[in-house]
Nucleic acid binder design. Structure first.
Lengths: 170, 170
DNA sequence: AAGGCCATGTAACAAGTTACATGATTAA
DNA sequence: TTAATCATGTAACTTGTTACATGGCCTT
């Protein structure tokens, strides 16, 4: 039994909440883990097909708009349980802005600072979003933990951005 | 002329420093951008082949151990210049530990904190490494800027980790 | 001169992205 | 009742990963 990849495992995780179509799973995943685990529609459909092939999920009868509702099987529940018990791997970050800065000597200084400024806006917005969400008092402590990561991360990025003029300016 | 992807563009960037084999480029890239732009050997060879096909690099005569030294062409230099002038895209993060925490209600609490603790060690080490590197007085300001990101990032992760017992413990 | 290591590269596969297709709903 | 929109999915392509192959180099 080949290992589950984190994307497939997450789908199994979400299916614990009851049946869902691929489309709905994408929505849920985007909302719940999308900020630290990117995935796309096509991926989800492919994983669901693979999971069905392995007997970890079952598709119910096709409904309107060719909606195919998936449910967990017992094997799927077991596979998920085995997966969550494993230690998670290291994170990967791919940060194009850092490439721009790393190759900054080939860029017009004004343009470079412009890139950074534009970038800053998006981070400030996400930080605000996370803080707003955290204000919600009755929230699952696990989601609170992941949101708190978001706050720390975005704050760090903003602090770093604000330190750049001093580093690059001189 | 299709766009360059950031990996290919980075290779062109490094080739400004003179000829290099694929192997050497992997080493350089790992060292210089590896912490925020992961890439693998196979990718590099594939990109080099593609770049050669587009006339952006040229392979010199094959040497010992079938080493193939690549050099930039003028077209390559131009393509790189065009690429660095573009605004960089958003970063992507994939953080398996956050998945574990998000699905934390299915994990034994002790095991979860164990995962976190193990993770913490790696981050503390990287933070120390970055700080040590920054102590070097005569360093390119662009590298200093990217290293400073590393310091902010790792510090944020550590602070977040240290806040977890309070969030999850209660 | 034999054994192990290291530099170099390739091939096969898995995961991720982009662009497209289609048939319900809903709103004008 | 037609047009717009939305839910749903597929196909083609690009990127990323893992595992393997090979032959020069160094050490004893």
């Amino acid at each position: 039994m080949t290992e589950l990849n984190p994307t497939a495992a997450s789908l199994l995780g979400f299916l614990h909440g009851g049946e869902a179509s691929g489309y709905e799973l994408v929505e849920t995943a985007d909302l719940v883990i999308g900020d630290f685990w990117s995935l796309t529609r096509s991926q989800v459909y492919r994983e669901l097909a693979a999971l069905e092939g392995r007997g970890l999920v079952e598709a119910g009868p096709t409904g309107a708009r060719s909606r195919r509702p998936y449910t967990l099987t017992n094997a799927g529940r077991a596979a998920f349980a085995a997966w969550v018990a494993q230690p998670p791997g290291p994170e990967t970050i791919r940060y194009p802005l850092l490439l721009s800065i790393g190759f900054g000597s080939w860029i017009d200084p004004g343009a470079l600072l412009g890139f950074v400024a534009e970038h800053r806006v998006a981070h400030a917005e996400r930080l605000a979003k996370y803080e707003e969400m955290l204000a919600e008092p009755d929230m699952d402590k696990y989601q609170r933990a992941t949101l708190t990561f978001g706050v720390h991360y975005e704050s760090a990025v903003l602090a770093w951005i604000d330190s750049l003029p001093e580093i690059l300016g001189g």
